[in-house]
Nucleic acid binder design. Structure first.
Lengths: 248, 248
DNA sequence: CGAGCACTTGATCGCTTTCAATAGCTGTGG
DNA sequence: CCACAGCTATTGAAAGCGATCAAGTGCTCG
């Protein structure tokens, strides 16, 4: 297992797949050019730790492709996932040196990075970046609080259904499927990662996945390929309002 | 129970108790003057709901004094607290109309408010405000993620100890006590509110409080007045690193 | 003094964890 | 080609922790 951390200069920002969703989304062409000049790409392999909790962080960046997780670990080994980083999500905190969490690549991943100091200076002079980052941070805060309800008050079955519906809806936003039809997607997480996200054991995750399959809420091909025949049903199982999702 | 929502113009920002910690912390005197001109105060009584989840929010603001909670409720009544609002904390989200959570005053509370539209415009022209708000939002995000570990992975006893140590440390930051001595503070929350924060039932909260008292980790006078003879011990019970807190 | 509220305490139940065995899959090497 | 290690996932049985149901205490206020 060679730890070959790639480090490359790649195409310009105008062709970037996350151009319109990442921290640079609001930037004008000239601002984009400035970013283009100081950005660099880094790739990580599945399983690699991108940032260790407590380490000094000298860069920030965006996930371009692939998936990473933010996790916290107690001394005795109990771990809790506190964030799921998808393409366009931002990593790192301007204005703070130490990293509060482990960031681990769960799939092969490509990141668009900036050294922290230059990025911080850029933020001072480029309101479009600061505003977009505020907007994204507020969204993450909402997501974290949503998750607190899941962790604090939902049953194991509801937790699984909540996770599935979140992953499903994310895929839907990319594929632009019609809301009525069945949803099909791949779970990007192992059972253990799901457990760490949900505050459960991996055995309980496995049992509840089996139960949802047995009850016809989901269908499984292999371990990771999921079909949801009826999203409304899944949302009910998650304990969420089933009325939502009517985004014509 | 008269719902007398006070609405007053009060002293200038320069005398404000949260002047150096709130969203206005970074403002220059002239910027402060602009804020001063459009701010207004509102008071709420303990128990009053300040904002209903789903309602249109036409103002944002800072807690000046008192305590409020952010809560989420499922259809069947299960509720989870997702935030504790202390003096200087910011309420409301620029750029979004609907409120995602209930905001409830747990004590009598005074808020410094701004109508949303003017505040948003001000944010565009005043980077000091936008930057401070980003900083505060990132802090809240860290706090929310810290809490996810508590909700997902800690035992009932650890949860209670975590809550107590957080409240204790907050008070410490105000009182500037020496780290070695005993900590004394009042719990601003009922047992039920503690339960909603911790994802427990109020019975379990009560039992674990009794257990911590029995084991000498805390002492109680009345229901709310808490003495912690040894903070290190409390931190151990919370499952946190006990080495921390060495801030000379 | 009695109603109402916040809190405490006890007994029992049930969900999730824990411990343990097994299955399925992949890659390696004889 | 098959045996085997290593990993992920499933399933079963038993244990434990927190929830639920149910009194009961102490305080405040009318």
């Amino acid at each position: 297992m060679t730890i070959a951390t790639g480090q490359t200069h790649l195409p310009s920002c105008t062709d970037c797949p996350i151009r319109h969703r990442a921290v640079c989304a609001r930037c004008e062409p000239d601002e984009l050019q400035t970013l283009d000049a100081i950005k660099y790409y880094r790739s990580f392999e599945a399983g690699q730790t991108i940032i260790w909790s407590g380490d000094k962080m000298d860069f920030v960046g965006s996930v371009v492709s692939g998936i990473a997780t933010l996790t916290q670990t107690m001394e005795d080994g109990r771990t809790q996932m506190v964030g799921l980083l998808l393409p366009s999500d931002f990593v790192g905190r301007p204005g703070r040196d130490g990293a509060p969490y482990d960031v681990v690549a769960t799939t092969d991943i490509m990141m668009c990075c900036f050294r922290k100091k230059p990025f911080e200076q850029l933020m001072m002079t480029t309101p479009h970046i600061a505003h977009r980052l505020l907007e994204m941070t507020l969204d993450e805060l909402d997501a974290a609080r949503e998750w607190m309800l899941v962790l604090g008050r939902k049953t194991a079955r509801e937790k699984i259904a909540s996770l599935l519906s979140i992953v499903a809806r994310r895929d839907a936003s990319l594929d632009a499927r019609r809301p009525g039809g069945p949803m099909i997607f791949d779970l990007p997480l192992t059972r253990e990662a799901m457990a760490d996200y949900l505050g459960l054991t991996l055995e309980t995750v496995s049992r509840q996945m089996s139960a949802l399959k047995r009850d016809g809420v989901i269908r499984l091909e292999g371990k990771r390929h999921v079909t949801v025949p009826d999203m409304g049903r899944l949302m009910e199982e998650a304990g969420d309002d089933s009325d939502g999702g009517c985004l014509a």
